[in-house]
Simulated assay, not measured.
Amino acid sequence: MTNNQLTEAIERYLSGQMDKEELARFDELRREDADIDMKIAEHQQFLGILKQYRERVELVDRLNAIHAEIDVHELVEEMTSHPSWVVRMWRQHHSKISVAASIAIFAMLATMFFTGYFGGQPKYRELREEIGRVKQSTAQLNLKTNALQRQINGSPKKHMLPGNYKGSGFALSSDGYIVTNYHVIGSRYDSVYVQTASGDSYRVKVVYTEPQYDVAILKIDDSSFKGLPALPYSFKKSKSDLGERVYTIGYSEGDSPVVDQGYLSSANGYQGDSAAYRVSIPVNPGNSGGPLVNSKGSIIGIVSGKQTQTEGASYAVKTGYLYKALQNVPQDSLSDKVTMSNKNTLSNLNRVQQIKKLQNYVFMVRVY
């Protein structure tokens, strides 16, 4: 099926123009092919945007029509020269004036609502952690002093300065490719480092960023890095089920990995974003870029943010969009092809055993 044929089929599917037999075949195709399912979700979201735009244009046309019917200057003159006509004018035009006033009030309230004027409006918060300047300066001085002491003692152990921002990331392959959120890295940085659970740190280069999906691909670029053992987890490309138990590992507190658990609460993310899941799980600044893992040890998403005023309402980019980002990476940007693991040795282990293995593949990401 060509792209044009697929687009036409999706439009007929969403508009309800398929007969029962064709609809059943297309539903089965959607369940079996995650790419087609994503294209349907994206097309549905696109149609929603078009509908909102059409409604906005209709509202503007309606306001213009009402404004054209009301001669403001004539009304002012009538009200000034003939006060007794005010009642007559109201009786003749009250419906139009009421509609215009109602729409104006609604537009004003909507603007105040969406700009966060009312404190109760939940907002999306990215979970990149900004390091305090005073704390950073003090820590830098302490680390420099400790580094000098280690040089005197001949210790080879590497340690990192605090950095400007902190997040999490996890391995895509055993040869040093790592994924995190784009917003953790941002567009302005001097250097980026990752740190393991054991405290070793490595310089990385930013290979590719995909702001649309909030994905960044990193590669450890450090001669002291000797590679990782084979990844024990796989990446789930198909959709996950509501209510599925999940957990995440990230660097939301100090230099040690923190585990949080919960369940998948919605197939869509913030404001209906089809590229993300909503999960009922407590996450904090520093969790951005960490893996969202199901009970079988498969990674189903990348933790990215949360609602500010809804307890436990967090979000994660679906791994299907990680695959899309990898497909968009220019081949000349990769020293080796990124081969994502499809073998899962965590599936038969309990949660504690899974975490013992998984934490060795999750990194703290520091941005300078």
Results as ranks from 00 to 15, higher is better:
5 Q>W: 00
7 T>V: 11
7 T>L: 13
8 E>A: 08
9 A>V: 04
11 E>Q: 11
13 Y>K: 09
14 L>I: 13
15 S>Y: 06
16 G>C: 09
17 Q>A: 14
21 E>W: 00
23 L>C: 10
28 E>R: 12
29 L>G: 07
32 E>Q: 14
36 I>M: 11
37 D>P: 12
37 D>N: 15
39 K>G: 03
40 I>Q: 13
44 Q>N: 12
46 F>M: 13
59 L>G: 08
59 L>Q: 14
63 L>C: 11
75 L>Y: 09
76 V>L: 14
81 S>I: 14
85 W>N: 14
87 V>Q: 13
89 M>G: 00
92 Q>K: 15
93 H>G: 00
93 H>L: 09
94 H>P: 00
96 K>Q: 15
97 I>V: 15
99 V>K: 10
101 A>Q: 08
108 M>N: 13
110 A>P: 00
114 F>C: 01
115 T>Q: 11
126 E>C: 04
142 N>K: 11
144 K>H: 07
144 K>I: 07
149 Q>V: 15
151 Q>D: 12
153 N>Y: 07
156 P>Y: 01
159 H>E: 15
172 L>S: 04
173 S>Y: 09
180 T>H: 02
182 Y>R: 11
184 V>Y: 06
185 I>H: 04
186 G>V: 06
188 R>N: 12
192 V>E: 02
194 V>Y: 09
197 A>R: 05
200 D>Q: 13
207 V>D: 06
213 Y>C: 10
216 A>N: 08
217 I>C: 08
217 I>A: 08
231 L>P: 10
231 L>S: 03
233 Y>S: 07
235 F>I: 05
235 F>V: 02
238 S>R: 04
242 L>Y: 11
243 G>N: 08
243 G>C: 08
244 E>N: 05
250 G>Y: 01
262 G>W: 02
264 L>K: 10
265 S>F: 09
268 N>I: 09
269 G>T: 08
270 Y>K: 01
270 Y>I: 06
271 Q>F: 13
275 A>E: 08
277 Y>A: 04
279 V>G: 01
282 P>H: 03
295 S>R: 12
298 S>L: 00
303 V>H: 04
304 S>Q: 11
304 S>N: 12
310 T>E: 15
315 Y>V: 01
318 K>V: 01
323 Y>D: 05
324 K>E: 12
327 Q>E: 10
329 V>Y: 04
331 Q>A: 10
333 S>E: 08
334 L>W: 02
337 K>N: 11
338 V>L: 09
339 T>K: 14
342 N>D: 14
347 S>G: 05
348 N>F: 05
352 V>E: 15
352 V>K: 13
354 Q>V: 00
355 I>D: 06
355 I>V: 15
356 K>Q: 15
358 L>K: 01
358 L>R: 04
359 Q>C: 03
359 Q>P: 00
359 Q>G: 04
364 M>G: 12
366 R>N: 11
